[in-house]
Simulated scan of single mutants.
Amino acid sequence: MTKIHGRVVRPGAVVPGSVEVDGPTILSVDEHPHAGDDIIVPGFVDLHCHGGGGHTFTRGDARDAAAAAAFHLGHGTTTMLASLVSSPYELMRDATAAYLPLVAEGAIAGIHFEGPYLSGVRCGAQNPEFLRDPSLEELSALVELGAGAVRMMTIAPELPGALDAVRYLAGQGVVAALGHTDATYEQTLAGVAAGATVGTHVFNGMRPPHHREPGPVVALLDSPSIVCEFVADGIHLHDGMLRFAAHTTPYRSALVTDAMDAAGMPDGRYELGGQEVTVADRVARLARDGSIAGSTLTMDAAFRQAVGAGLDLPAASAMASTTPARALGLGDRLGALEAGLRADLVVLSADLRVKRVMRAGKWI
């Protein structure tokens, strides 16, 4: 058994004490004074990540994907989805097959297809060459091949066939997310009614809100069944907007990285979905038109950004761990420091820098 001492961040509170771990499981969380200055938070859960450390999930290469997951594990992400970008069906199929062993061994929690069923008007850094209307034939083949590994797909709800696709995904236990959309308020709510439960990087890649046409942003923020992703890097969202949105969606907001392979790497030229990306001063942009192209974020940096924006430790921890775990249907297994859950935790210094990472009771 192992005891980790510090300021333990639990749902709604920070308590001095210790987390006792027995094998892969949290045995108990005890309160006692003089626990030290370290801050102990649940392992981070990232619903939306394309790569990091010079490695990518977007090409369907299992070795590259394993290295990307290992990079983010070192930054405290103990559970993550491997996110692809809009791609030809053949790449989606091959990546699903290639990543099955990584899901089986727990290196990744599953696959997230961000596209290709997205709005051309709001495609952002998605490659317009690969955008298309939803296909139940493609979807059913991917879900069947994945045998549970396909965990989430982002769809623009206004596209022809989109609502049928959302219903199909929800019926198969796959998280249907709404994003990269030019939908009206009403079209977005139709997607929610069809079974969508996540808003993909809300505000970004969406028709902006207007007081006479609220659009997807307001529809998602105001829907009690929707978990709203936020890219907390100070670039995708102003800190004031992040704080406002988090206060608007208590227990429904999730920090995500939306990171590409340039995370943790020097400035320079990179590639995303077959398009050239230039990274300068940690900002990734498409070379062709300057669109923001994912991020160079890690979850520990997102956590620090959220706290710096004015959110308290329990709120930021819920956004980084508890809520995204629940969005994936894993809330009864991980995402909080509670007895009986998997022993995934991050030990942070007083200034919120990663000191140690534990996954399933083992130090990384």
Rank of each mutant, 00 (worst) to 15 (best):
F230Y: 15
A104K: 13
D94W: 10
H34K: 12
T2Q: 15
L169K: 00
G329H: 02
D281P: 12
H55V: 05
V279C: 07
F71T: 05
L348P: 05
T77V: 14
A62W: 08
V41M: 12
A327V: 03
S223F: 01
G171I: 07
D289Y: 08
K355E: 14
D289H: 13
T323K: 07
V121K: 15
G53C: 02
P128L: 13
A315E: 14
E137H: 14
S28K: 09
C228V: 15
C49R: 04
H34D: 15
R151Y: 03
P209F: 15
G179S: 06
G329M: 00
V357E: 08
E213G: 11
G43T: 03
T322H: 08
V143E: 10
A70V: 04
R122G: 09
F203R: 10
G331L: 05
P16R: 13
T78D: 04
L131F: 14
V8E: 02
L169C: 04
L348I: 05
L337K: 02
A170G: 02
H55C: 12
G54R: 08
G173L: 09
M92P: 08
M153V: 15
R359I: 01
G110P: 01
C228D: 12
Y117A: 03
A109K: 00
V150S: 00
G76M: 02
V143Q: 06
E31A: 14
A309T: 02
T200D: 09
P214E: 09
H201T: 09
L330P: 04
G36W: 06
D261N: 12
G120K: 14
V227A: 08
V29S: 03
R132I: 14
L328W: 00
L328E: 01
L341S: 01
M299F: 09
G6F: 12
L139T: 13
Y185I: 07
D312E: 14
L169E: 03
L84M: 14
V256I: 15
S83L: 04
G115D: 07
L221V: 15
V231L: 14
P266M: 08
L255G: 01
T154W: 00
S135E: 05
D182Q: 10
V175P: 01
D344F: 03
V166N: 00
R212D: 11
